[in-house]
């Protein structure tokens, strides 16, 4: 299986990565080389084998639903690239246009 440049651009959008044309070309080559190596896994007949998501047989680890200490607002915001009035500042997501 080989990845096209268009697929690389689609995956980059899914991964939220802005790539240059050179990066798209180079990543296409890299991904095809890596996928070429690991492609044998697609050929294995594993229809009767159950998947392993987790190496240990641990299930449904829960804790009591209690209020516990957590970061203060100031601590949570301390690493924010842009912060105002006790909140993270982000570009407008909804609305906009003439009303802004």
């Amino acid at each position: 299986m080989s990845i096209s440049e268009e697929q690389v651009r689609h995956v980059a959008l899914l991964a939220r990565l802005k790539l240059t044309d050179e990066e798209v070309a180079r990543l296409g080559e890299d991904l095809n080389s890596i996928l070429g190596h690991i492609d044998t896994i697609r050929q294995l007949d594993l229809a009767d084998v159950p998947p392993t998501a987790h190496a240990l047989d641990v299930v449904n680890e829960t804790r009591a639903d209690e209020v516990r200490p957590c970061l203060s607002r100031e601590e949570a915001l301390a690493n924010g690239p842009e912060v105002a009035e006790g909140a993270f500042v982000i570009p407008r997501i909804v609305g906009g246009g003439d009303a802004s």
Partner: peptide
């Protein structure tokens, strides 16, 4: 299914 699903099954083996 072709990649992640197969990899998890290979992990079982």
């Amino acid at each position: 299914d072709a990649y992640y699903g197969q990899a998890q099954k290979a992990r079982t083996l």
